[in-house]
């Protein structure tokens, strides 16, 4: 069997790329790098399918596996922030040995199965793609293997429903809408216009710096309670001092400030 020049060029460029992606999946430190490596390997596999004239399979491989499935993986990794150190903790005792044993068993069964497989004489691409590649695949899926295909899809849908059922929580009260919150604020008469926004100063603004009330004291309500719980609230003292110094330089300070400064100087 001979391979054309263009196809072998493609193989020698894309093949190492796929291997590099697969190795990145195994050895990358960051979980996102591993996920991207896996996506690369899948995309290159799809390109190989296309090169071997299984166009439909190749494009669906890229579309479904790297476009949708890997993207969901990436979503979860980014949102939860999985670290490589997490995976080394053994939560169930003896889990690693049991896992290795099961993997070896699976490998043995698979190798035995594949080793026994007998190949008929190849019919050739011309006959396989006689009615066009898509129609050929459609005939296999919805003709010869329709039961296997439908059973698999039923299994997948059941799994998805099961996952949804496990993650679902029944809401006991109706969810408060924006309008409900606004009505509630007006009824209680507190913070009718919403909570105050965090500090915006002449030369500085940040969510961790509280706004100043008219009397100069910091408004505690303007800081997110998460930041307060973490103890990440900035102080206003330094900022007001800088502002006052600038005001002093340009001669734009209030009388009260001027007198206190004179007292300090004296």
């Amino acid at each position: 069997m001979t391979v054309g020049g263009a196809e072998s060029a493609l193989f020698w460029i894309a093949g190492p790329l796929a291997v590099a992606g697969a190795l990145a999946l195994l050895f990358a430190r960051k979980a996102v790098h591993a996920a991207v490596g896996m996506a690369t390997a899948m995309i290159v596999l799809g390109i190989f399918y296309i090169a071997q004239q299984a166009e439909f399979l190749g494009v669906i491989q890229i579309f479904v596996y790297s476009g949708a499935v890997m993207m969901l993986f990436l979503f979860v990794i980014m949102l939860i922030g999985v670290d490589s150190s997490d995976s080394l903790v053994e939560t169930i005792r003896g889990q690693r040995w049991a896992g290795l044993l099961l993997a070896a068993g699976l490998a043995a069964i698979t190798i035995a199965g594949i080793g026994k497989a007998a190949f008929g004489t190849p019919r050739g691409l011309a006959e396989a793609n006689k009615d066009g590649n898509v129609s050929g695949a459609a005939r296999l899926i919805f003709g010869d293997y329709v039961w296997a295909f439908e059973a698999t899809s039923a299994l997948l849908i059941t799994a998805a429903l099961g996952a949804m059922l496990l993650a679902h929580r029944e809401r006991l009260t109706p969810k408060a809408t924006q309008a409900d919150w606004s009505r509630e604020r007006i009824r209680s008469g507190e913070n009718v216009a919403g909570l105050p926004a965090p500090g915006v100063y002449a030369r500085h603004n940040a969510v961790d710096t509280p706004a100043l009330l008219p009397d100069g004291s910091p408004a505690e309500l303007s800081i997110s309670r998460v930041l307060r719980a973490r103890g990440q609230v900035g102080t206003t003292g330094a900022l007001t001092q800088v502002t006052q110094e600038i005001e002093h330089e340009v001669g734009d300070e209030s009388d009260e400030q001027a007198t206190t400064r004179k007292d300090d100087d004296a």
């Binding site: 991207v36 996506a39 995309i43 799809g46 439909f56 494009v59 669906i60 890229i62 579309f63 790297s66 476009g67 949708a68 993207m71 990436l74």
Partner: peptide, 12 residues
């Protein structure tokens, strides 16, 4: 379908 697949990769 290729357009959809390429768009899916572009999201990366």
């Amino acid at each position: 379908l290729l357009v959809l697949a390429v768009a899916g990769v572009g999201v990366y």
